[in-house]
Structures are given as C-alpha cells and as structure tokens.
C-alpha cells in the first residue's frame, strides 16, 4: 500500500472510532456500552490474547542458540573479555539477565543503531544514529508515566508513588491545572515517530497502515486526554466514580460525564483490544527475543534439537552381521571373521 493510502486508511480508522463513540454517546446515549461493556470486553481481549500469544511463543521450539553476538566469545583463558564482551556474548544466566535488563529498560539495540554514510570517494562510514533510540525512549517512558498517573482514577487511596510522580511531572507549575510535562513529551515523541516514517523515504517504503494506525491512535488518546484536562474540562469526581466501579466490578455510570470522556475511554479500549493482534505485542515479545535472551553456550553445552524424532538406523556392524556370510562368499572384506563353527561336544 502506498504511503498516501496508508495514512488515509489509518487516520480515517481512528477518526471513525472517535465518530462512533461520539454518535453512540451523544446521539444514542449508550453510556453503559461505551463506559462499561466495551472497556470490560477490551480488557478481557487484552489479557486472553496476550496470554495466548505468549503461550504460542513458548510452544515454539528453539533448535539452536541464535544470540546475536557482538563481542569476544568465552574461550581460552588468556583471551581477555571485557564487560561489553560479557554482555554481548553472554555465557551464564547473570550475563543474559544483564543484557535483557539493558534491552528492556534502555532499548540498547536501538542505541547501537548505525547508519551507513559515504565519505570521500570509496570511503564508507558507519555513523551512530541515535534519533530513533531517543524518540522511542522518550515515547515509552512518558507513556509509562502517563499510565501510572492514571492510577489516581483506579485506586482509592492512591499508592504512595502516584502523588510523587504527579509532583515531579508538574514540577514547573505552569498553567492551571498544572501542566504535566509527560503529556507534552508523549505527544511530541509520538509525532516524531510518525514523521520519521513519513519523511524518510526508506521508512516510508516499509511502513504500512499497521504502523501508522497505533501512532494515530495514541495521538488521538493524548489529544482527547489533553483536551479533557486543560481545555474542555471534565467532571473528574464522576469519572472516578465510573472508573472505580470498573475496577471494583460494581459498575456505575454517573450523570454529567462529557462525551469527550467516552471518546477517550473508547480509544483506550480499542488500544487495549488491539494489542494482541498487532505489533504492540512487543510489550510481551521483547522478553522472548531469542537473539537477546539466550546465552551463547553452544560450545559448552550440547543442545539437542527438540524436533528430532527417533530415526531408524542400521549400523555397519549390524549390516555386517546380517550379510557376513554372503560378503565372505563374494570375497568382500569383513571386519569380523566368519563365525566359528560350533564345537562338537
């Protein structure tokens, strides 16, 4: 699909979701459907789907070790290995765990991204390219902060870390209600990740609606959230009554909640339900990346392919036992001699 069509399809899909929620609540008054039923269905889809995915991955055999190794392998004792070698060519569990921590929390694979550039004449350079890493780390961590801040709607009393996060996030005390930096940065980072796909020709070529749709969806989520908090305002107490009803399994739909909230929660529901069917599964999949989470111990431990089935073999010894006499008759060399005739008693 070309880029224009991809962008149109994915943005129209998100816009369509907004319209569905708007018409459903504003026109048809389906508050229960959009505020209770769909969120529950979405969360169930999320959990069932993600567990199904992970179990399916777990069922995949790994016939050999495929860590991507970028460091000196463990070998003769006088060949030195630095910490980088130990992380990039891990042997034991500790090294693998270290590598996974750096991968999951610091996105090290993206950090190591390089870009090929041509120098003078025949010269080729590999330059470090950190923009993707930067955009994505800002995006993921601000999203995490936004998610944790939302715990104020889902817990009562709030756990101790929520007020701390709110305080740090609103450090500059700009605007009323206090502007949270994470919201702005999340929007900026998602926009950057979107523009990156659109502006760079190579990225544009490999991008599909499945890449654009989640970005538009997240931008839609952020926009409705920002509108609700800073611009059009919402009845926060009633909203918390609704969300607490959801988590305590005693759903209520209070009066006076604006349509905007239902649009927001509908987009969130679609986002959660979309997880197991899309690239967003990397949330669980990152832990199961075989190039990261296995140790490079092929020379230390014998790994037997789990696909191996019992093969019927006919060894040479058995073959010779079977045909020895015929072989001797035909003058073929045999390893063991002809069977001795049974001694008479």
């Amino acid at each position: 699909m070309n880029v224009i069509l991809s962008l149109i399809v994915s943005s129209v899909a998100v816009f369509g979701l907004v319209v569905i929620a708007f018409v459903g609540v504003w026109g048809a008054h389906l508050e229960w459907l959009f505020g209770v039923v769909i969120p529950y269905l979405a969360v169930i889809t999320f959990f069932v789907g993600m567990i199904y995915r992970v179990v399916q991955w777990g069922k995949c055999a790994m016939p050999f070790r495929i860590p991507s190794t970028c460091g000196q392998q463990k070998t003769l004792p006088w060949l030195k290995r630095t910490y980088v070698d130990k992380l990039d060519n891990p042997v034991g569990t500790v090294a693998v765990v270290g590598r996974m921590i750096l991968e999951v929390l610091c996105f090290r694979s993206l950090f190591r991204n390089t870009r090929l550039e041509f120098g003078n004449g025949q010269e080729i350079k590999y330059k470090s390219a950190k923009w993707l890493w930067f955009g994505s780390i800002v995006f993921h961590y601000t999203f995490l902060i936004v998610l944790l801040r939302h715990l104020r709607f889902f817990t009562e009393p709030m756990p101790f870390f929520v007020p701390i996060i709110e305080k740090v996030d609103g450090f500059f005390q700009l605007y009323v209600p206090t502007l949270y930096q994470s919201g702005l940065l999340l929007g900026a980072a998602a926009t950057f990740l979107l523009l990156r796909r659109v502006i760079d020709g190579k990225m544009r070529y490999i991008s599909l609606p499945a890449d654009y749709f989640p970005l538009f969806l997240i931008l839609g989520l952020a926009t409705t959230g920002v509108l609700m908090r800073y611009v059009l305002k919402a009845d926060v107490v009633s909203i918390k009554e609704l969300t607490m009803g959801l988590v305590s399994f005693r759903p209520v739909v209070p009066e006076g909640i604006s349509v905007l909230f239902y649009i927001h929660i509908f987009l969130v529901s679609v986002f959660f339900a979309y997880f197991p069917f899309s690239k967003l599964t990397h949330m669980a999949g990152v832990f199961l990346s075989p190039t990261r989470n296995v140790s490079n111990n092929s020379r230390i431990v014998r790994h037997i392919n789990p696909w191996n089935y019992p093969v019927k073999v006919h060894t040479y010894a058995a073959y010779e036992d079977e045909f020895r006499e015929k072989m001797i008759d035909a003058g073929l060399p045999v390893e063991k001699g002809a069977p001795e005739p049974a001694k008479p008693e």
């Binding site: 817990t155 009562e156 756990p159 607490m244 009803g245 988590v247 305590s248």
Partner: peptide, 11 residues
C-alpha cells in the same frame, strides 16, 4: 494492580 488493590471495595 488496580483490581487486587481495590479488591471489590470502591470508596
């Protein structure tokens, strides 16, 4: 977390 933290009792 919110579900088991609330454990069915919404304030």
């Amino acid at each position: 977390f919110p579900i088991w933290y609330t454990s069915g009792r919404a304030a």
